[in-house]
Nucleic acid binder design. Structure first.
Length: 121
DNA sequence: CTGATGACTATAG
DNA sequence: CCTATAGCCATCA
């Protein structure tokens, strides 16, 4: 698999992370079909153009903490963007139990099909 | 080719 | 919770 392709897949996965939720670098790599590619995800996001529509701020490390450096206001920027969509961030930390993205579960909760009978959660 | 680098991660103390 | 350490892997000088 070539580089451009890998980055495209990574961006595609990140674009799928819903508002108000976060995913880890490793998780994004896995979903993109790139085993042990967590670092590559970071690299790919780092290379995103400033005007990109990719929600890079919804990606944090496995511990649920912001990996961007405080210097340059990068971390602050990510924190602000997350809070803007309802994610609680305290001491550059996010509760994954609450905001972590669970693709399969979210699929059920957000795109419920055949609820004509059950109609509720 | 070689060694350094980093928006990573799991593990141990 | 924190630091240290060791794997990890595409890029880059």
């Amino acid at each position: 698999m070539n580089a451009p392709d890998r980055y495209a897949r990574i961006r595609a996965v990140v674009r799928d992370i819903p508002r108000g939720r976060v995913a880890s670098y490793g998780q994004v790599a896995e979903l993109a079909g790139i085993a042990r590619g967590a670092r590559q995800v970071g690299y790919a996001l780092n290379r995103l153009p400033p005007d990109s529509d990719v929600p890079w701020h919804r990606v944090v490390n496995a511990a649920g903490r912001i990996s961007l450096p405080d210097a340059g206001g990068a971390a602050a920027e990510q924190t602000a963007r997350l809070r803007a969509e309802g994610v609680r961030v305290a001491r550059r930390r996010i509760d994954l139990e609450r905001y972590g993205w669970r693709p399969d579960l979210d699929e059920l909760l957000w795109k419920p099909r055949g609820l004509d009978e059950a109609g509720e959660r």
